[in-house]
Structures are given as structure tokens and as C-alpha cells.
Amino acid sequence: MSSDAATPSFLDIVTHTPLWVWPLILYALYAGWARTRDRIVSPTRLFALPVILVALDVFELARNGLSLQATVGLAGGIVAGLLAGLTAARHTPVRALDDGRLAVKGHWLPFAIVLAIVVVSYVRGVALGIDPSLATNTRFLLANAILAGFLPALMLARTFGSLPRGYVFG
């Protein structure tokens, strides 16, 4: 990228990123990386990250205004994410333990999903910071909404779908 006023350099983008964003990015990457390891967790802990990611994306879209395009894109992304997540769940079963906790095999897909969510969110913020008119651009809104629906729904559906058949929260 050039360093003229119209196109900020990579350094400009990084140095103008609000400080609170960096710990959030680091935590998201750590949480995604932790899912690459075998672990034993409570059901609440298993679902915490996917639920938080869904809530953050829906909040972000609502904050920017849910146009018809964004709503349609979000719905389409959610449906596609749910289908993809349920398909992916077949390859990563979770085992229920006698004490109610869950034995989860580590997998790189959650890390990839978290990384994609972080990258998409960061790029969205940078793009809107550089060109605020994108907030009314139909293609931008639609693509953003599709990804905002797809990625968290993929993670949430994969988590639900990996639970043992007949598993009851309790």
C-alpha cells in the first residue's frame, strides 16, 4: 500500500487500531488455539465461545443497521453455516463423561473459524474506517452479513452436532 492520504499504509492501519482491539484479538486466537487440543470441559464452557461469537456478530450487524440486504445475507449465511457445521460435526464427536463433563478431541477447524472471524471483523472495521460510505454499499453489506452469519453458525452447529446422541444438559 502507498503512504498517501487516500490509502493508509499497513503501519497506519495498525497504529490507528484502538488499543482495546489487540487483547480481544489475542484472546480470540488463544481460545481458538485451545480448541486444537484434547480437553475435558463442562457443557457451558464448550458452548461459551460459539455463543459469544454469534452474539458479537449479530450485535455488530445490528449496530450498523440491518438493511434488507444485510438481513437476507445474515439469514443465508446462518443457514449455510448450520448445514456446514452439522456436516463437520460428524468428524469430531464429543464423549460424555459420568460426571457430566465432556471429553472433546482437539481439532484445527475451530481455530480456523475463530481466525476467519477475527480477520473478517478487523478488515470490516478497517474498510469502514477508510471508507465510511461502505456502510451503505449493498455488495459490502451483503458479503459482510453472509460471513457474519456463516462463521459463527458453523462453529455453533458443529459444537451442537458433535454432542453424543441423546445427550441431555443437566
Rank of each mutant, 00 (worst) to 15 (best):
V79W: 07
G81T: 06
A34P: 00
L102C: 11
W22S: 04
G125C: 02
R37L: 13
A6I: 07
T36K: 06
A148D: 02
Y122N: 08
V41N: 07
G161P: 06
A80T: 12
I52L: 15
R101M: 10
V119I: 15
T92N: 10
V72F: 05
I52V: 15
P8L: 12
A34Y: 02
V118E: 04
A75P: 01
R101T: 15
L109Q: 10
H16N: 15
V118Q: 09
H107M: 03
K105H: 11
L61Y: 04
T7Y: 06
L46E: 08
V118C: 05
V14I: 15
P164C: 04
V51P: 01
L46W: 05
V114E: 02
L128H: 03
F169Q: 01
F10L: 15
S42G: 12
L86C: 01
V120R: 07
L68W: 02
A127G: 03
P164A: 08
M155I: 03
F160Y: 13
V14F: 13
L68F: 09
A48K: 00
G149H: 04
S9V: 10
R101Q: 14
Y122I: 05
I113N: 04
D38K: 04
A103C: 08
A5K: 13
G76N: 01
A6Q: 15
I117R: 02
A5T: 13
L26T: 11
L82Q: 08
F169I: 03
R39P: 05
T7W: 07
P8I: 12
V123M: 13
P132G: 09
V14H: 05
A135I: 04
I117S: 02
S67W: 02
P50K: 09
L24H: 00
V58S: 03
D131P: 00
A89F: 02
N64R: 14
L115H: 11
V104F: 05
L83P: 01
I78N: 02
R124M: 06
A153R: 07
L156G: 06
A112I: 06
A96M: 00
F169T: 01
L151A: 13
L68M: 07
A70D: 01
Y27I: 11
D131I: 01
N137R: 08
T136N: 13
G81D: 04
T36V: 11
I13P: 03
A96H: 01
H107A: 14
G100N: 12
A31H: 09
A28N: 09
A143L: 10
P110C: 11
G149W: 03
A48E: 01
L24S: 13
L53I: 11
L83Q: 12
L19E: 13
R35A: 15
W33N: 09
G170Q: 11
